[in-house]
Design a protein around this nucleic acid. Structure first.
Length: 589
RNA sequence: GGGGCCGUAGCUCAAUUGGUUAGAGUACUGGACUGUCGAUCCAGUGGUUGCGGGUUCGAGUCCCGUCGGCCUCGCCA
């Protein structure tokens, strides 16, 4: 039907007769001549209907509207002097229409790809096919496609085996909420869609496929966020006879290749590392944004010797007083905005409050609470915070975890609002040596921080039963611009150690046997040492393309309530389907 | 489950302290125009202000509820 695409024609094709197909992007009707911008995913080309082609041609062209699909046959011509469009790669030429065929007339669209203002997101999602016509969306999906191409090539070159694992598996006791699929053959029994192919890839290691890779779809029935969708794509891989360094090195190479190919950025390897403890101390977060400073400063020792009731109450009960210095920000934060920040740390992180000081000329600290402190103490605080005139100091006095969350939240918010970094910059690093376990506040038990198959550091083995809180895992997270882009661990390959960890997590042997019996069995049949990692592909595309929502990087994403506005999934089903599955829907109260 | 923002013409938005007939741009329809490229010019159509209730002489505006979208805490091994 066509000889060229709409982004292809240049001066070299002048005087050739060509056939183009595409969507009418815009039409400019001058009565005598009609100019049309014809669009496809490759670009735009101006095609012209003029009286030389006949009155009926001009009439037909004047009836065309945005998003009509047409085919034209015509001659490529040099544009007259002064009418070259330098904004278009094809702007030097135009196609003089000889034949015009309307392949499909479009209804007037609720919005068009060319319009200046982006419509609301719900409308974009309902008419996703229109939204996906926008060059911006096409650019992002093409970038995603290219990244996947590079990833597949990278691992193919390194003898990785691509193995597909089941979608229909069984529910796991820990982790995220599962999406369930009812079994027809076994009424009352359910498959679970995979949260990740974790167990299968470990089994593949036991089976001797010592380098496994898969671009795997994963499902988690949890609440959504700007960077979280209920179904998402992971680059999942696993390797045998490796340690953490081997896996990290493998991913270093991949990230560097992607950065070079996609953004033309040369990343220095190896990517920087930081331990979990250091990340929490310096940034209050296990995925710190290292594009800017504003590090957390511990002032607990100073607080302990002051008389200010709020600080003393925190330190006397084993809490901490930590702060950040928003350099030069004092004048930008009115009383009202500081109240907003206070409300933010209270509401979002459960902090009891926010103490703040403005650094005045001569370096004196001013604050409504300053009268609670002697000048010498304030001077010491200013020095600790490396305060300069014009700075804004913010402090949270609370439990360790609250100071972490609140200050990390403030740091992220202020870093963005104060433009502390170049949004186009790409900063990749690793956070390593995560704790093996964390305390479940409600149930008063230990839960695996990563997952229950994570191997502790060999030197921490004795701590498992004595001081589980201090045991560190052979775990590593890839952090890009303050986002967790992926994470992995070296796995337990010893059956006895796996049992010990299950015991510690309070998973009874019978339950472990029921849920993971096949893995525990497999570990006894010659399981090699192994480990791996999974990267969130959607998130990586988001970070590499500089978008701020994962939905912009997924062709057909779901809303915050996990609905697909185009297909209106989830939908109701026929009573007969429920009968076959032995299911009955209860009325919701 | 909690907190916040938003919902006005097909679309993007405006509408003074609660005050006359809810406006603009764009799209759409009709007309003019042979060099535009966000074409231009003229005219026109288009509204249950998401929905329901309340307060008021009077509600797009205030209050309550509800539906939908977004951000976020919890949650996400």
């Amino acid at each position: 039907m066509r000889t060229h695409t709409c982004g292809q024609l240049r001066a070299e094709q002048i005087s050739q007769t060509v056939k183009l197909c595409g969507w009418v992007d815009s039409a400019r009707d001058h009565g005598g001549a009609v100019f049309l911008d014809l669009r496809d995913r490759y670009g735009k080309t101006q095609v012209v209907a003029s009286p030389e082609g006949g009155d009926s041609l001009v009439q037909a062209a004047s009836r065309l509207r945005s998003e009509d699909v047409i085919r034209v046959v015509g001659r490529v011509e040099q544009r007259p002097p002064g009418t070259v469009n330098t904004k278009l790669p094809t702007g030097e030429i135009e196609v003089r229409i000889q034949e015009l065929e309307v392949l499909n007339k479009s209804k007037t669209a609720p919005f068009t790809p060319g319009q200046a203002d982006l419509p609301n997101e719900d409308l974009r999602l309902k008419y996703r096919y229109l939204d996906l016509r926008r060059p911006q969306m096409q650019k992002t999906l093409l970038l995603r496609s290219r990244m996947l191409e590079i990833i597949r090539a990278y691992f193919a070159e390194r003898q990785f085996v691509d193995v597909e694992t089941p979608f229909l598996g069984r529910s796991t006791p820990e982790g995220a909420r599962d999406y369930l699929v009812a079994s027809r053959v076994f009424p009352g029994r359910f498959y679970a869609l995979p949260q990740s192919p974790q167990l299968y890839k470990q089994i593949l290691m036991v089976a001797g496929y010592d380098r496994y890779v898969q671009i795997a779809r994963c499902f988690r029935d949890e609440d959504l966020r700007a960077d979280r969708q209920p179904e998402f794509t992971q680059l999942d891989l696993e390797m045998s006879f490796v340690d953490a360094e081997d896996v990290i090195g493998m991913i270093d190479g991949l990230i560097a290749r992607l950065a070079k190919a996609v953004l033309d950025i040369d990343l220095a390897l190896p990517l920087p590392r930081m331990t979990y403890d250091e990340a929490m101390a310096r940034f209050g977060h296990d995925a710190p944004d290292l594009r800017f400073g504003m590090e957390l400063v511990d002032c607990t020792d100073l607080a302990r010797v002051c008389e200010f009731r709020v600080f003393r109450q925190a330190t006397d009960t084993g809490g901490y007083v930590r702060g950040i210095n928003a350099q030069g920000a004092a004048s930008q934060f009115s009383r009202k905005r500081l109240d907003e920040l206070t409300e933010y740390v209270k509401q979002d992180f459960g902090a009891r409050g926010l103490a703040w000081f403005r650094v005045e000329s001569e370096g004196k600290l001013w604050s409504p609470i300053a009268k609670n402190f002697p000048d010498s103490w304030l001077a010491e605080l200013a020095e600790r915070m490396q305060a300069s005139p014009g700075d804004l100091l913010l402090f949270v006095a609370d439990r360790w975890d609250v100071t972490c969350k609140a200050l990390a939240g403030l740091r992220k918010r202020l870093g963005s609002e104060l433009k502390c970094y170049d949004p186009a910059q790409l900063h990749c690093s690793w956070v390593v040596e995560f704790p093996m376990f964390e305390r479940d506040q409600e149930d008063e038990r230990w839960v695996a921080m990563h997952h229950p198959f994570t191997a502790p550091r060999p030197q921490d083995l004795p701590l498992l039963e004595t001081e589980p809180a201090r045991a560190r895992a052979q775990a590593y997270d890839l952090v890009i611009n303050g986002s967790e882009a992926g994470g992995g661990t070296i796995r337990i390959h010893d059956h006895h150690l796996q049992q010990r960890v299950f015991d510690l997590l309070g998973i009874p042997p019978e339950l472990a046997e029921e849920r993971f019996g096949f893995l525990l069995d497999a570990l006894q049949y010659g399981a090699p040492p192994h480990g791996g990692i999974a990267l969130g592909i959607d998130r990586c595309v988001m970070l590499f393309s500089g978008r701020d929502s994962i939905r912009e990087c997924i062709a057909f994403p779901k809303t915050q309530r996990a609905m697909d506005l185009m297909t209106e999934a989830p939908g109701e089903v026929d009573g007969r389907q429920l009968d076959e599955l032995g299911l009955r829907v209860l009325p919701m109260i």
